[in-house]
């Protein structure tokens, strides 16, 4: 059995790259892989080494705005295909994470600037004595 790796390439909502542009870029890499354009970006499939090159290339296409994770099912597998059954729960998860990729990009930009982890913020919960005072103030 030939080893395969299937990847999702997900474009952050903050990016100006379209799935179509991403797919054309991937085709232009001219590597022996399968490429499928999707609503969130693209899926690619091939041998693991090639796929890692493709993922690096895609990430570099729009700095800190293209993300990737593996996918268990091969491209077009009917067991997981939306067109056959409707979406599986993992799709909703992907959709939710896609929504917040812009924030992750901000974090990656911080890393690029060499920033370090800020001091942990203090607990915002109101101390019980202060709460007692507030209740008194409000109710009197």
């Amino acid at each position: 059995m030939i080893e395969r790796e299937t990847r999702l390439l997900v474009i952050s909502p903050t990016s100006d790259i379209t799935p179509d542009q991403l797919t054309r870029f991937l085709h232009a890499m001219d590597l022996p892989i399968t490429i499928k354009e999707t609503c969130y970006g693209a899926m690619v499939e091939g041998d693991p080494d090639t796929i890692h090159r493709v993922v690096d290339g895609a990430r570099a296409l729009d700095h800190n705005k293209i993300f990737s994770k593996r996918r268990g099912y091969p491209i077009g597998d009917t067991r997981r295909c939306r067109a056959h059954h409707g979406s599986r729960p993992g799709f909703t998860q992907l959709e939710a994470e896609w929504h917040d990729l812009g924030r992750i990009e901000l974090g990656l930009d911080c890393c690029d600037r060499g920033e370090s982890v800020p001091e942990p913020t203090v607990d915002h919960r109101v101390p019980i004595n202060r709460l007692r005072e507030i209740i008194k103030e409000v109710t009197e």
Binding site: R82, H85, G86, S87, R88, P89, T92, Q93, E95, A96, H99
Partner: peptide, 12 residues
Amino acid sequence: KMVYPDIEAEDI
């Protein structure tokens, strides 16, 4: 045939 109603994450 089993089907799974599509739903947008933000609707949940």
